[in-house]
Nucleic acid binder design. Structure first.
Lengths: 109, 109
DNA sequence: ATATCTGCAAATGGTTTGCGGAGGA
DNA sequence: TCCTCCGCAAACCATTTGCAGATAT
């Protein structure tokens, strides 16, 4: 939590191992999962272990069911003004953004 | 492209194999990657093979460098009205959303 | 003929797990 | 003693890749 760098498990392993040379990678993963369950950290991934593909290459938004993992298109107009807002804050060039909604789908609620 | 179900590679494999029983999974992955490079489909993943973790469990937005993969926080106010908009379209309950900006970071541009 | 694509099977690599032992209460 | 956590190494599994044969131009 003391870093802003959004670390990978491996990065954490390398760091902590400097102080605890016997540390094993399994322990890092185990504790990351515990912290995640406790809501103290979040994992930045698409939510599933599989990659999913979308036959529509145009940018558009998605809804992901937290229970069954199904993915739906969301036909909202793109909020492209957000790119400019982010650029002003970051001072980086923003090419596009992706927006995903999470909740429970019709079958699962 | 004829489905709206955002398929996994495995789902495509099972479908196409019905028509081409000798099809192999490697071929599916190879062609998905070609289509992706050609911009005809998109892959729905966080962009890297590693999972990344965030010590801040509060919802907030991220910027991901398309070149080096580094992740930055974006201190924009949450656009929570979008949840309601998505609910009206989908008729599903939306709990939260995630927003990621893509571009090149200061080091990479 | 030659360049590309395929099936197959093995390799890859990040993540998970089983097990026996160490440490704490 | 009992429970929890750990290191270690093997297992897991989605994805990639090397190779030799098939296909297409």
């Amino acid at each position: 939590m003391g870093t802003k760098c959004h670390p990978t498990a491996d990065w954490i392993f390398a760091c902590v191992k400097r102080k605890f040379p016997h540390l094993s990678l399994g322990t890092v993963y185990r504790n990351l999962n515990i912290l995640k369950e406790q809501g103290k950290i979040q994992e930045l991934s698409f939510g599933s272990t599989f990659d999913r593909f979308d036959g529509n290459p145009q940018p558009h938004y998605h809804f992901i069911c937290e229970k069954c993992g199904r993915v739906f298109d969301v036909d909202l107009p793109l909020e492209d003004h957000l790119n400019k807002k982010a650029e002003r804050i970051l001072h980086f060039k923003v090419n596009y953004h992706r927006l995903e909604f999470f909740g429970k789908c019709g079958n699962c609620q």
